[in-house]
């Protein structure tokens, strides 16, 4: 998908999933962020020159269905694993951004047999501190201006001028925002069980983080990586929660190095 161009639909055990498949070669499965910036970024087409890139939208995002029984990223992980089987992806690199990173981590704890690598970018998913520690800044209870300052090294980069967007595209934006809350409201942006399952991940894992991410800080990212055996960690300078948007060139270099 980009917002205006629909991908194709794959029915996975009764759930319609939107996938955007580009190029051919060694497969990469990309799970976008809740804000779905990724499909329109140049690094995707760059990757597609030598690889098969599969951008898949979890239930409730993009044009994918949202069945009632899917209530949590733990459920998304099962649907996405079913999709991997359905598309018969093997030795795939699994790359997840933000919420997509959380879902990717959940998937890898359940079954990593079809993956060659796991790459997490500013992922949500674990809680590290106690009840009054704010591990993940609350993006819903704080003033939008403050949230923008937490999300972006340069908040101007996060401004999308929706006034010129067609309703069909805005419907996807609005539904993505709704689904994000539906699945991540409570427990806020994490699965209390995930940190106790991360040891099950056996594929080489690399974690990429925006150096100025104020929603989930690099310290959080580093600790998250520390829970995955052998995981490596790097930061991207001059970027917040979406380094792929704010520093596309530096991000693309980091990603290709991690995929090599």
């Amino acid at each position: 998908m980009s917002f205006e161009r629909a991908g194709s639909v794959v029915n996975v055990h009764g759930v319609d999933i939107e996938v955007d498949i580009r190029g051919s070669g060694a497969p990469i499965l990309i799970l976008p962020s809740e804000e779905a910036w990724e499909a329109d970024l140049p690094f995707i087409d760059e990757l597609a020159k030598t690889r098969k890139v599969v951008i898949a939208y979890p239930p409730g995002f993009g044009r994918s269905a949202r069945p009632d029984w899917v209530t949590h990223p733990d459920d998304h992980a099962y649907v996405m694993l079913d999709l991997v089987e359905r598309l018969d992806l093997r030795d795939a690199a699994l790359v997840g951004f933000s919420l997509g990173g959380w879902i990717a981590a959940e998937m890898a704890t359940k079954d990593d047999s079809r993956f060659s690598k796991l790459i997490l970018v500013d992922a949500f998913g674990v809680k590290l501190g106690g009840p009054t520690d704010v591990d993940i800044q609350d993006v819903w209870v704080q003033h939008p201006a403050k949230v923008a300052a937490l999300k972006w090294a340069d908040p101007e980069k996060g401004v999308r001028d929706f006034s010129s967007w067609p309703d069909a595209a805005l419907t996807i934006v609005a539904r993505n925002m709704e689904s994000f809350a539906r699945f991540c409201w409570e427990p806020y942006m994490h699965n209390p069980k995930l940190r106790h399952r991360l040891h099950r991940i056996g594929v080489p894992t690399h974690v990429i983080w925006g150096e100025k991410d104020g929603v989930v800080t690099p310290a959080y990212g580093k600790a998250y990586a520390g829970l995955i055996s052998g995981a490596t960690f790097e930061t991207i300078a001059g970027a917040g929660h979406f380094p792929q948007v704010e520093q596309p060139a530096a991000f693309a270099r980091a990603l290709s190095a991690a995929l090599a």
């Binding site: 805005l170 609005a174 925002m177 709704e178 809350a181 539906r182």
Partner: peptide, 15 residues
Amino acid sequence: PPGYVPVEFNVQALK
């Protein structure tokens, strides 16, 4: 808050 009103209302809100 997200999802309190239907998607159609939030499309208008985005505009």
